[in-house]
Amino acid sequence: MRHLLSAKDLSRDDAILILDTAAQMAATQEREVRKLPTLRGKTVVNLFFEDSTRTRISFEAAAKRLSADVINFSAKGSSVSKGESLKDTALTLQAMGADAVVVRHWASGAASRLATSGWMHGSVLNAGDGTHQHPTQALLDAFTMRKHLVTDPLGNDLAGLTVAIVGDVLHSRVARSNVQLLHTLGATVVLVAPPTLVPIGIDPWPCDVVHTLDQALDAYDIDALMMLRVQRERMTGGGAAFFPSPEEYSRIYGLDGARMRRLPDHAIIMHPGPMNRGLEISAEAADSPRSVIVEQVANGVAVRMAALYLLLAGEEGAA
């Protein structure tokens, strides 16, 4: 594996290797000294064209616990805002000797451009590109589901599980990544969204689509329920009109206590964060014992350690 650009690029074996490696990484994080020497001398650049403190510090923690040198590069500019172009930024990073670039960008395809345009030679790890992909998020979600819902997690996939993903699928790189990865791992995926937030052309996606949360709760035995963040202002303002009001969205798609109690007892509640409490999820659901939302954050560090390790140390054969 040279780059990690899209969940679609991962085979079942690739995905299980990353999840198993993440499990090993997570185990090391229970020790008193959590730092591993594995990536000593390697340079990892966190290149963020979009604000995301959560994702950046997760990658930063992952790289540092593997003893890599970490450079944080916050590039607010873009060729659109007349800042430095993506190409020049890449050439700069190449000149600085980056072994891996973790990139977050507002433009779909930006990570792919960095990896394939010949501007730089290091590994590219996509930390979210526009509304396209966010593969480590899907991996940390799968890791979390496997840990809670699969009896003997190591070496196994998610066959037999049903995962419902609720919210703005149209603009969600989390949904796109999860549909592909969960399918690869054998889970059944149900997307729940108003038709305005389902992309035209979704037919070939390996998932079901329903239009109300109640319908999904009635029709499926849901093992994991993932609530997506709603961009309140983007949805109703500026003539975008994806739904009439936040209140109506909350009534039809929000997860409250009553809906939570309709889930099977073992089912877990997930959210990629940051949450809009009271919009897509109530405090009662978010803070309930079924919620694994905080644990997702911790698992994110382990999964990102695994990804960095497999990208940067993998070729040297250390396992």
Binding site: S108, G109, D129, G130, T131, H132, Q133, R173, R176, P199, I200, G201, I202, D203, P204, W205, G239
Partner: peptide, 21 residues
């Protein structure tokens, strides 16, 4: 109005690539 921010043909490929249709 139907093409504000549009990037490519709206269909199966735009759905997967996450580009505005």
């Amino acid at each position: 109005r139907l093409t504000e921010g549009s990037q490519m043909h709206e269909g199966e490929v735009s759905a997967e690539l996450g580009l505005a249709g």
